Computed example of a mutant assay.
Amino acid sequence: MNRVERGSACAPTPEVPGILSRDECLATGLAIARMQEPSGAIPWFPGGHTDPWDHLESAMALTVTGLRDEAEAAFEWSRTTQRPDGSWPAKFRRDEIENDDTDSNFTAYIAVGVWHHHLVTGDERFAGRMWPTVRRALDRVVDMQLSGGQIAWASGRGGRVDEALVTGCASIHHSLVCGIRLAGVVGDAQPHWEIALYRLGHALRRHPELFTPKDEYSMDWYYPVLGGALRGGDARRRIESRWDDFVVDGLGIRCVDHKPWVTGAETCELVLALDAIGDDRRARDLFAAMQHLRDPDGSYWTGLVYADGKRWPVEVSSWTSAAVVLAADALSRTTGGNGVFRDAVVPADRVGADGCAEGCPVFV
């Protein structure tokens, strides 16, 4: 029996009583580890492509389930594949670049992964080793910020795409929060990230016209809550505003509002968003509802077309399994990283009523 088969778990594994046991959660971590390539990359599924964001989400799940060697191999892959400008190509397949464009959200997410690893393990040496990678990445992302505070979603050989997306920018908001906190741990303050964060948060809260509308996608609905740009009454009102459009009782949530297709990762991300605003009952109910996507080996199918009862696409995806593990950790408050999404918010005493930081100009 090799190490992945028996596991290298050395810390408490999340359990959500009545829904997901510790052994089942560990099995999900091991299912992700089995998909990992020798280089450390974690593709969407065996033989599939790897993107830098979903790769890191899977690494975070490995950290939660105690598979630390596998998690750190994934982070090392990120460290060694980073380009000199701080970015990563948007898509790899078996370590060959398939798409060399820069996605700002993909690039920023390394900050969430490394901060999460620190929260779970307390390993400051690891944080210090990864810090130059995080610093280069967030500097690259901040360079892509547009005049209204929003961040351009991509750049490529044709130059920067001056278009911003709610989902990506909300996730970058989370990444900047994590990067700023990591900067405090390593003793290397980055005040320009703080200014970028406050400008971005203000844009997300007050200026929807700055973003290309993608209203049919559930991620645009809940991501401003998940990424910490919205909390309190604003967050609750946003969730209520489209609950009936996306939530399918007993199954999970739609990825697209007009399609009879529920997806596991989006459902678990909504669980995390609900947990962040204290809506514990609905978070737990949705987590239970999506378990129909679980495979006996611990992995999770991506989605279900409930109109005909067929799983689609016909794949178990690493990032869906990862979202399950992270949601289980948040609901159970098990590891030190359980609040990484719950705490993805600028401290209230640093933000004025207009959503801008005290001491910073008001960006309108």
Score class of each variant (00 low, 15 high):
residue 251 L to I: 07
residue 185 V to T: 02
residue 177 V to R: 03
residue 125 R to A: 06
residue 208 P to A: 08
residue 34 R to H: 08
residue 313 P to K: 07
residue 279 D to Y: 07
residue 19 I to F: 15
residue 215 D to I: 02
residue 52 P to F: 05
residue 156 G to P: 03
residue 18 G to R: 13
residue 297 D to Y: 02
residue 105 N to Y: 05
residue 119 L to H: 05
residue 91 K to R: 14
residue 102 T to Y: 04
residue 311 R to C: 02
residue 192 H to V: 09
residue 266 E to K: 00
residue 345 V to G: 00
residue 122 G to Y: 09
residue 226 L to R: 06
residue 237 R to W: 10
residue 288 A to E: 14
residue 217 Y to T: 05
residue 24 E to N: 11
residue 146 L to A: 02
residue 4 V to E: 04
residue 190 Q to F: 10
residue 347 P to K: 12
residue 340 V to N: 00
residue 101 D to S: 12
residue 45 F to I: 02
residue 353 A to C: 14
residue 258 H to N: 04
residue 262 V to C: 04
residue 45 F to S: 03
residue 144 M to H: 08
residue 291 Q to H: 13
residue 148 G to Q: 03
residue 109 Y to L: 09
residue 42 I to F: 07
residue 211 F to P: 00
residue 346 V to Q: 10
residue 82 Q to M: 00
residue 183 A to S: 05
residue 303 G to C: 02
residue 49 H to L: 14
residue 196 A to I: 08
residue 248 V to I: 12
residue 178 C to N: 01
residue 139 D to G: 15
residue 90 A to K: 09
residue 328 A to E: 11
residue 283 A to S: 08
residue 59 A to H: 00
residue 117 H to M: 00
residue 105 N to V: 06
residue 248 V to M: 09
residue 75 F to R: 01
residue 334 T to N: 13
residue 270 L to Y: 08
residue 321 S to H: 03
residue 341 F to T: 02
residue 154 A to E: 10
residue 343 D to I: 01
residue 114 V to P: 04
residue 7 G to P: 00
residue 115 W to M: 01
residue 269 E to C: 09
residue 15 E to K: 13
residue 105 N to M: 01
residue 358 E to D: 15
residue 242 R to T: 05
